[in-house]
Design a binder for these strands. Structure first.
Length: 593
RNA sequence: GGGGUCGUAGUUCAGUUGGUUAGAAUGCCGGCCUGUCACGCCGGAGGUCGCGAGUUCGAGUCUCGUCGGCCCCGCCA
């Protein structure tokens, strides 16, 4: 660079700068060499500017420019010129001007890029991750990281204005029961003992409330050693918060205010508050899931009572065994082919449905279906009325255990929406899901486990149920769902030890175990713990939705592959025998270095 | 742990019933070209068909295994 100092970014110059001497720095995106005049599109994080090398005005510089290649790093000194008549490029924000170069310094050369950076071809993701520093130069990827930054800034300033303190919590902490599999870190100075990386800073933020911090937040990395998905990474980022002296309404207000600020400042979109609320029970009933995509209808209709005595044996026996029959009216879909229906049947089978019954409502109102003969006219009428079935509609039915019916129809509903193109990535439907069950029964472990986490408060009126019928108790937990994706959740916490003891007992954690694993929390609850509650938002998922991407990998600078590896650094890697020995670890796997 | 799908030039892909020397576009290299903006024109190089076995006279193509990418189920309080 020598004595050159950059004067402008590559998105800044306009007609108003005509005649100005400028110094620009950036990467060669494209070179157009006409033998005579040479054009270079110079790129930086901010944009593109065309720089021009003219053999008549500066032969030496022009000769040097002849050798430039993609992704070389340049500094140029030159003069801003308005482009000749008719030569404006309306696709570029700097398309009205160009910079006539007087001095060129090659700051660095580059290997030929492993994949094109200037086109929108889908490149193998493994390759993109191996050369992530090249991938991130692509404007689309740069944009995602810029939006992410803006989002963090927006949320930070919102929370700061609401008196939150940003406080860091340990990354090396202790493993606690419940929840996901922990990432473990061996302790060198304590042989045989391990730290766990936090699945969330849950206990620490509660302890900060007990410490009187009143309002805490943190943009914090969390770790869960579970299998990956398009929206799940082993390390991910949460906007984590906790507040003292609050109830659910306070939490909704904070959550809504923060989302409002987020959408406004990152996308310039004004979203409506308050957000609609739906109870867990209603969400399951109407959508089959606790994270409903509310951008479209296709809701579930319960026909159990209507068909319990019908002539169709499959339906009748399912109902008799305590199961249910539910239906979706796919309006106007009677045109689906037999093949379509077979594919959809196979699709719901993935989610446990042993069959998918269907009825096409013909133009004359008649039912075309393999099962229509099993129903009386009255039954058909009753079903049609409940489903508001009209000519041209296609009705789907699933009969099974409630869990299976809901899982299958929830997925069918989403698949239909995809086929019918009912959703747009530009719509953002936010909804609170409330009144979750506190506990659910785990058949494998033969005990109840926490739906949210063990520190979630039950509804006051349900506390007695903890002993009589724990599965029926509802909690003071809430989730925020955006377009069918859970982007956040939280709860009002237990702040008194006797209630915490009760919940531990309902979870099958006896006093000894509770004392062993949570004594610090229990003692703290006895030390003047204020009522408190909180929530956390998944930053990666939020950014994925805001950036219109289908994978959180596209909004994370250096993500992991589905096998939890990093093609660039080749992590996880082998370690030396010496390192293991220092940690008092003896490998029992083969070929460990 | 399981299911699906993909793997061919640097990249994105094509490759017929198994049959001679595996193609295209783009990129790359060289030459020409003074107003392009995905510049244009001419020429050239570039392949362990992911890897390993098997079937066969013969395998990019068929079979089995294996490795890897992606999607999903389980899992993820």
């Amino acid at each position: 660079m020598g004595d050159l100092k950059r004067t402008h970014y590559l998105n800044q110059l306009t007609k108003a700068d005509e005649g100005r001497e400028v110094i620009l720095m950036g990467w060669v995106l494209r070179r157009r060499d006409h033998g005579g005049v040479i054009f270079i599109d110079l790129r930086d994080r901010y944009g593109l500017t065309q720089v021009v090398f003219n053999p008549e005005t500066n032969p030496e510089v022009h000769a040097k420019a002849h050798g430039l290649r993609s992704e070389w790093v340049l500094a140029v000194r030159g003069t801003v010129a308005v482009r000749p008549e008719g030569m404006t490029n309306t696709k570029m924000s700097t398309g009205e001007i160009e910079v006539m170069v007087d001095e060129l310094r090659i700051l660095n050369q580059s290997r030929t890029p492993p994949f094109p950076l200037d086109e929108e071809v889908e490149v193998n993701e493994n390759l993109r991750l191996k050369y992530r520093y090249m991938d991130l130069r692509r404007p689309e990827m740069t944009k995602n990281l810029v939006i992410r930054h803006k989002a963090c800034q927006a949320m930070r300033s919102f929370l700061h204005a609401k008196d939150f303190l940003e406080i860091e919590t340990p990354v090396l902490t202790r493993s606690t029961p419940e929840g996901a599999r922990d990432y473990l870190v061996p302790s060198r100075v304590n042989p045989g003992r391990f730290y766990a990386l936090p699945q969330s800073p849950q206990l620490f933020k509660q302890l900060l409330m007990i410490a009187g911090m009143d309002r805490y937040y943190q943009i914090v990395r969390c770790f869960r050693d579970e299998d990956l998905r398009a929206d799940r990474q082993p390390e991910f980022t949460q906007i984590d918060m906790e507040l003292s002296f609050v109830n659910e309404e306070d939490m909704y207000e904070i959550g809504e205010g923060m989302m409002k600020a987020l959408f406004s400042e990152t996308m310039g979109r004004e979203i409506k508050t308050p957000f609609p609320r739906i109870t867990y029970a209603e969400a399951i009933n109407r959508y089959g899931t606790d994270r409903p995509d509310t951008r479209f209808g296709l809701e579930l209709t319960d026909l159990t009572a209507t068909v319990e005595n019908c002539g169709f044996k499959v339906f009748r026996t399912v109902v008799k065994k305590g199961g249910m029959v539910k239906s979706i009216n796919a309006r106007g879909c009677a045109t689906f082919s037999r093949k379509d229906l077979d594919v959809l049947t196979e699709y719901v089978a993935d989610f446990g449905a042993r069959g998918l019954a269907w009825v096409k409502v013909k133009e004359d109102g008649e039912w075309q279906s393999p099962i229509t003969k099993f129903f009386t006219d009255e039954e058909r009428k009753a079903m049609a009325a409940k489903l508001d079935a009209n000519p041209g509609d296609l009705l789907f039915f699933v009969a099974d255990r409630p869990q299976v019916v809901h899982a299958a129809l929830a997925e069918l509903r989403l698949e239909l929406a995809r086929r019918l193109d009912l959703t747009s990535k530009d719509d953002f439907d936010l909804v609170w899901v409330t009144d979750f069950p506190l506990l659910e029964y785990d058949h494998e472990q033969k005990r109840h486990t926490a739906v949210h986490h063990p520190f979630t408060a039950p509804r006051e009126e349900d506390i007695d149920l903890l002993e009589s019928d724990p599965g029926q108790a509802l909690s003071r937990a809430y989730d925020l769902v955006l377009n069918g994706i859970e982007i956040g959740g939280g709860s009002i916490r237990i702040h008194q030890k006797p209630l915490q003891d009760k919940v531990f007992r309902a979870l099958g954690i006896d006093d000894d175990e509770a004392g062993d694993k949570f004594s610090f929390l229990l003692e703290a609850l006895e030390s003047g713990a204020p009522p408190h509650g909180g929530m956390a938002f998944g930053l990666d998922r939020l950014m994925m939705l805001l950036s219109g991407r289908d994978s959180i990998r596209d909004v994370i600078a250096f993500p992991k592959t589905q096998k939890a590896s990093c093609p660039m650094t080749e992590a996880p890697s082998k370690v030396s025998r010496r390192q293991l020995t220092e940690l008092s670890l003896k490998p029992d796997w083969k070929e460990q270095g």
